[in-house]
């Protein structure tokens, strides 16, 4: 129950308005929570196979790269990879899902990923770099989805907490206070009636 409340009709009317507002807020927040949950599940379902695919691609790339590095002379490896020619830029825009600003990543790549000659380098290096280039699309999509999922999860947690506070604390407290004021006013009403009856008895006597 709300402490230090004035048990007046005015206060009762205000509290009734607050209850109506809190109930409407609770309903809206519950709907928001359900929608965010739905979106989150949808994204999580997309993330799982995507992550598996990216991990497999990166593992394969690393394996190939390690083999290439092992079969090449250290000076040749250094010379081949010292000055990369592939240029990579990432543009970030924001979309709104249930009022949550989630990032949308778009990549811009230019230049060749194979930036060396053929005489002193291993073919495995080509395979590794081309596999890495192919993995970029999935990698960026995964980064985007995981960030979206993280932001939605934070928002979901906050919304759920708000819904719970409204449902289990604010609305019951308001109801209790209303009940208290109603009881107080009824008590005052009975008190008044009793006093009037007593005065009437005194006058008659």
């Amino acid at each position: 129950m709300i402490e230090n409340v004035n048990a007046t009709r005015m206060e009762l009317l205000q509290l009734r308005k607050r209850v109506a507002l809190a109930s409407r807020g609770h309903r809206l927040l519950s709907e928001k929570r359900d929608e965010i949950s739905r979106q989150l599940i949808k994204i999580a379902r997309q993330i799982q196979p995507l992550r598996k695919r990216v991990e497999a691609q990166l593992l394969e790339t690393c394996r190939r790269f390690m083999l290439a590095r092992a079969t090449m002379e250290p000076e040749d490896t250094k010379a081949a990879l010292a000055v990369p020619t592939k240029k990579f830029a990432l543009a970030v825009s924001f979309a709104s899902i249930m009022n949550v600003k989630v990032p949308h990543l778009a990549k811009e790549m230019s230049g060749q990923i194979i930036c060396y000659g053929f005489a002193t380098t291993s073919g495995e290096l080509d395979v590794a770099l081309l596999a890495l280039e192919r993995a970029f699309d999935d990698l960026i999509e995964l980064a985007e989805k995981e960030k979206q999922a993280r932001l939605l999860a934070v928002e979901l947690q906050m919304t759920r907490r708000r819904v719970n506070v409204l449902e289990h604390v604010v609305i019951p407290e308001l109801h209790e206070t209303i009940k208290f004021i109603f009881a107080k006013l009824a008590e005052a009403e009975r008190d008044n009636t009793t006093r009037l009856m007593k005065i009437t008895d005194i006058i008659r006597a």
């Binding site: 002379e73 000076e75 250094k78 010379a79 081949a80 010292a82 000055v83 000659g117 002193t120």
Partner: peptide, 21 residues
């Protein structure tokens, strides 16, 4: 091998370094 590294660094205006064989 050293020349490959040095020319690449020179033409792309990167520091020449001292890590040559």
């Amino acid at each position: 091998a050293n020349m490959r590294l040095a020319i690449r660094r020179t033409l792309t205006e990167k520091p020449l370094g001292t890590d040559y064989s």
